[in-house]
Simulated scan of single mutants.
Amino acid sequence: MSFFGKQQSTSSKSKAAIAARQVPWVEKYRPESLDDVSSQEHAVSVLRRSLTSSNLPHMLFYGPPGTGKTSTVLALARELYGPELIKSRVLELNASDERGIAIVREKVKNFARIAVSNPSAAAKKQYPCPPYKLIILDEADSMTQDAQSALRRTMETYSRITRFCLICNYVTRIIDPLASRCSKFRFKSLDSESAVTRLNSICEAEGMRCEDGVVNAVLVAADGDLRKAITLLQSAAKLHGTVSPLKSADADQMDIDSSVVTVSSIDEISGRVPPEVIKELVNACVHGTGAGFERLQQAVQDVVLDGWTASQLVVQLHDELVFSDDLTASQKNKIVAAVSETDKHLLDGANEHLSLLDLMSSVSRALVPAL
C-alpha cells in the first residue's frame, strides 16, 4: 500500500516537472506582481497608488510590443482580486481576433452589465476586491471604428460596475472620444541594463551556458522586444540542449561545447543576416553602376537564393548605411526614401527579388557620387 502510494507521489512529481518544462518561458517568467515589472516606473507608481485606493479609472496602455503592457494589467488584476475572484471578475479579449462591433454588443456588453457578487471574508481580508469588474481588450488598435464607437457607450453606461483597460501598440488608431475617457499610460522600450539583468536571471534560473556576448546579441535581434528576446533564449536552449553545468568528477571528460549557446546560433535562430553578407551587398552597390550592374544583380540573386528574408535585409541595410559616419546627410536622405518605398512595396506583397534589386540600384546611385 505504501509502495504504491509512494510510486504515485513520485509519478505526480515527475509529471509536474515535465509540465513545468513545457511551459513557454514568456509565461513562466511573466511578472506576478507590479513589483516584478521592469523599466516602467511611472506607470507602476501610478497604478500602485490607484491600487491603494481601490479606485481604478478606465485605462489605456500603449507602446511598442514586448514592453510589459499585458503583463502589467494582469499583475494588477491579481493584486486586486486574488487567485479566486480573478476568474469571475476579469475578462480578457484579444481584439485582433474579434474586432467587429458584434464582439462589443455580445461578449463585452454581456459581461459588463452583470453586477458583481460579494467576495468571501477571507478574500476581502487579503485583497482589496473592489466592487467592479475589469475588462482587458488587448490589441485594441485592431478594432474597427464602429466597434470603438460602440465601446464608448458601453464604457459610459456600466462604469459603476465595470472598468476597462485598452492595450494597443499605436495610440493614434484609438478614436479620440474613446481615448479621452481613459487614463493613458505610455510603456517605453526596456533600457539595456534592465533587459540584460532580466535575461541573465532567466539564463541562471534555467542553467543555460552562454558564451560572452550572447545576451547582447539577443537584445539586438529582439530590437527592444523583451518577449521576443525571451523566446529566442528558449529556442537557443532547445537547439543546444543546455543543462546546468556538471559538477561530477567526470565532467572534464565530457564534450560540453555543443551545449554552449553561441552568438552565431542566436543570429541563425533570429533570422538575422550575417554582417559579411550585408557588407558584400554594400560593396556591390558601390560598384553597381554601369558595367558593374552585373555584380550588383548577382549579389542580390545570391542573398535571395540563400533564403534571407527581404524585410530583414532591408532593416539591416538601413542600419548599416544610415548610422554610417562616412555618408552625407543628402545621401542618407535618398537611402531612407528608397528603403521606406521598398518596405511599403514588400508589405503590399511585391516580389522580393525585384524589390531588393530596385532598392540596391537606388542605394548604388546614392553612394556613387561620394566616390
Rank of each mutant, 00 (worst) to 15 (best):
E106W: 06
E106F: 08
E106Q: 12
K107H: 06
V108R: 03
V108E: 01
V108L: 03
V108P: 05
K109N: 07
N110I: 01
N110H: 14
F111D: 03
A112P: 03
A112Q: 04
R113G: 00
R113P: 06
I114V: 15
V116R: 04
V116I: 12
S117C: 13
S117F: 13
N118T: 15
N118Y: 13
P119Y: 00
P119H: 00
S120F: 02
S120A: 10
S120C: 10
S120D: 14
A121P: 11
A122R: 14
A123K: 11
A123M: 14
K124S: 15
K125S: 15
K125P: 07
Q126N: 14
Q126Y: 12
Y127S: 04
P128T: 10
P128Y: 12
P128M: 10
P130K: 03
P130E: 12
P130Y: 00
P131D: 08
P131W: 10
Y132R: 07
Y132N: 05
K133M: 07
K133R: 13
K133T: 06
L134C: 12
L134E: 04
L134H: 09
L134R: 02
L134S: 00
I135G: 03
L137V: 07
L137R: 05
D138M: 03
D138F: 01
D138E: 02
E139P: 05
E139A: 02
A140F: 06
A140H: 03
A140W: 01
S142R: 11
M143S: 06
T144W: 01
D146C: 06
D146W: 07
D146E: 13
D146S: 13
A147F: 04
A147T: 10
Q148Y: 05
Q148E: 09
Q148C: 05
S149M: 13
A150Q: 09
A150W: 02
A150E: 10
A150Y: 04
L151V: 03
R152Q: 08
R152Y: 10
T154C: 09
T154D: 01
T154K: 01
T154S: 06
M155L: 11
T157F: 10
T157G: 12
Y158I: 06
Y158M: 06
S159C: 12
R160K: 15
